[in-house]
């Protein structure tokens, strides 16, 4: 599936601009400890995290993730979103919690 296909996810909002929504999502990874995520998340992952500071963009770029999804309506910091746009990383938010987002992906991936 591609980022565009996420549009049907409940209440999903793209928080930043200038994003190519044709990027492929290959898997899903959930985690908030950055070193753990660095060691285990795969390329093309949609990463679900509650972290919102700028370093999540560095992690997403280094691992070539497809996007970041913030659960439970969490909003990212402005400088995080600006950096995400520079690097072409989509940052979404949704009212769903991490478990429910993962369940939604199970239907789609």
């Amino acid at each position: 599936m591609i980022l565009k296909d996420l549009a049907s996810l409940e209440g999903l909002k793209l928080l930043n601009e200038d994003i190519d929504l044709n990027k492929e999502i290959e898997s899903v990874y959930i985690g908030d400890l950055l070193s753990w995520v660095m060691a285990h998340a795969g390329k093309g992952s949609a990463w679900i995290t509650v972290q919102t500071h700028m370093n999540i963009i560095a992690v997403a770029v280094l691992l070539e993730m497809s996007c970041i999804i913030l659960p439970e309506n969490i909003k990212a910091e402005e400088n995080t979103l600006a950096r995400a746009s520079e690097e072409g990383i989509a940052v979404f938010t949704t009212p769903l919690d991490a478990y429910k987002i993962a369940c939604e992906f199970k239907e789609r991936l």
Partner: peptide
Amino acid sequence: EMGFGAGMGLPNMKK
């Protein structure tokens, strides 16, 4: 709180 300090940095590097 920022998600660092998991104590995995040096072991990750070595791996």
